[in-house]
Write a protein that binds this DNA or RNA. Structure first.
Lengths: 221, 221
DNA sequence: GCTTGCTTTTTGACTATTCAAAATAGAGTA
DNA sequence: TACTCTATTTTGAATAGTCAAAAAGCAAGC
């Protein structure tokens, strides 16, 4: 049975792989796990001998199929727990991340199955992040479009928030850009670096390009 | 922040104190925690220097007020989580103990408060064990009466099951003696060591004295 | 080709928790 | 009083995960 430390290393590697591609540099794990570099080297070696990752000296790591399956299981727990905390226990979506971080290592598969059923087998968590199914399959998010690059003058739906720091989530909430919201990008001003858009309610909103790049949109259902 | 090992030692001491009285012998902790005696001695010393327990050499331990408060918090988490798993997630009451054992160390006070509210601030868990309130107050169960010693020919209500091994719980469930059930003790045969009783449904049931001693009964509300 | 600077690795040490096995203290008994 | 039995403690060692700080590797620029 993997310890929660092991689970955290694998999850961090998976999230990095999903965002960038290819090998995960040691520094990425240092950052994600908040430990010193030497600790990551030590831990990575242990994980490699357990067959959970492959370690390319001085390069970084890659998940093995076994490691990836484990990481996907942890990610599934994390996202289902988050959904549960928001939907059922009515917690604020900006505070559930840390709670889920602790609970993901304590929830058994049996309890998880109950939660999944209770929630009606949701496909995404409150931030719009896709939830892997029980077999570890996860919706492909490789070419999702954000407000930074989407079509202009077309009504679209917010489907996902890529930055989950409490500050950004608070901004998203307060400006009405939560997943599900309908928006229309009016124009993009590259020179000044802003995106102008209209919210369903008719209000207009201006946001910077980096912020716009964190808001994924899709066709209205 | 107490580790989950620390929490387990404190909880074990508290449960022993509640059932017996006075000092908790080292052997009780050895048994409850499933470790070798030397481990308990080592750990107990560490706990004592942290001010969580007092250690009387070659005698055993006693919780300090700080240690007891911590233990009550863990017990509260355990019992609320159990209640939640049974009532909300519809899990079987015989399987929730181990799940709660893991979750009690991962649930934050914030999440616990939500669960408590969601459940309507229950006073007892599915086995009838009293749930400490947020300040650590717990219903006094010192002179609860069991089917082994209760009045005869009087309709009473099962309020608590003291033995929570899966086997016993399965028996209780199948014979209709779950908390809430109405029963009447018809007679006690000390010589043969059995208790004869009647279940609400009219059926009669015979059980041995040790089993009867594990079923707490009280006045019908 | 050599220096700079960043990333990664090594080394040595520390904490928390555990076990195995030997030593010891006390309580009760002969 | 001496003896025995059991509970507890001591000792030495192991594992998982961590840090600090020094060493090493490597890419980029001069």
């Amino acid at each position: 049975m993997a310890t929660s430390t092991v689970e955290n290393y694998l999850k961090a590697a998976l999230l990095y792989e999903q965002e960038k591609y290819g090998i995960v540099p040691m520094g990425a794990l240092v950052e994600a796990l908040g430990v010193v570099p030497g600790t990551v080297t030590t831990m990575v070696k242990a994980l490699a001998t357990q067959g959970l990752i492959e370690h390319e000296a001085r390069q970084g790591v890659r998940l093995t199929p076994v490691g990836r399956a484990l990481a996907l299981g942890v990610l599934r727990k994390h996202r289902l727990v988050e959904t549960f905390l928001v939907q059922t226990l009515k917690m604020d979506w900006s505070e559930v991340h840390d709670e889920a971080e602790a609970l993901e290592h304590a929830v058994s598969d049996r309890v998880l199955e109950r939660i999944d059923e209770f929630l009606g087998r949701p496909a995404a968590d409150p931030h719009g992040d896709p939830i892997p199914d029980a077999e570890g399959r996860i919706a492909d998010t490789a070419r999702q479009v954000t407000m930074e690059g989407c079509a202009v003058n077309k009504i679209l739906r917010v489907t996902r928030i890529l930055d989950q720091t409490p500050d950004f989530l608070a901004y998203v909430q307060q400006s009405g850009l939560k997943p599900g919201a309908r928006i229309k990008v009016l124009r993009r001003e590259v020179a000044s670096g802003v995106v102008r858009c209209e919210i369903k309610s008719g209000q207009e909103l201006t946001l910077g390009l980096p912020a716009a790049a964190k808001i994924v949109v899709g066709a209205v259902v």
